[in-house]
Design a protein around this nucleic acid. Sequence first.
DNA 1: GCCAACGTTGGC
DNA 2: GCCAACGTTGGC
Length: 157
Amino acid sequence: MKKKYWLMKSEPGEYSIQDLKESEGGIDYWDGVRNYQARNFMRDDMKIGDRVLFYHSGKRPAVVGTAKVVATGYPDHTAWDPQSNHFDKRSTPENPVWFMVDIQFESEFSRPLPLKELRQISGLENMMLLRKGMRLSIQPVTRKEFDIVVKAGKGKS
DNA sequence: GCCAACGTTGGC
DNA sequence: GCCAACGTTGGC
C-alpha cells in the first residue's frame, strides 16, 4: 500500500494544531466534516501511516505542521448528537452518513508557513490549495508538494 | 466586513 | 432534471 499525502484544514479557533498536540498521546479524531468529497477521502482513501499537512484557515492562513493518520475512517458520532453543532439528523448509528479518521500530532513548524509564501514557492504551482475557489477542507497532496512544504516549514525560524 | 466561489435545497 | 435562491467557506 503506497503512502498518501493530505492537507487538512481547520479554523484554529475551532481546533488548532496545539489542540492536537495537547490531546492524549497527540491523537484525536477529525470530526465535523460535512462535505461529501472530504468525507469520501476519510472513509475510503486515508490509510494508517498517511501523512498530513495541518492547515490553519482564517485570519492567518498557513500550514502549521504535520500529522499522520492512525485510524482509518469510522462513523462521526457527533452527527447523531443533538447537542453537537455538527448534528445531522440524517445520520444514525445504524446508517452513518459522516465519517472521520484519527490523526496523531507529528511536528509543528518553527513558524507558520503562510499561504502567501506558499504561492511563491516553486514546485507548488499546481497545489490544490492554491487554486482559485478551492474550499475543500481535506485535499490530496502529492509527495513532492508535501516534501517541499515540510522543507520550507522546517527551514523557518 | 466584503464578496466570489461553491455546495445544497427546493420549487417547478 | 433544471436552476434560482440560499447558506457557507475562506481569502482579502
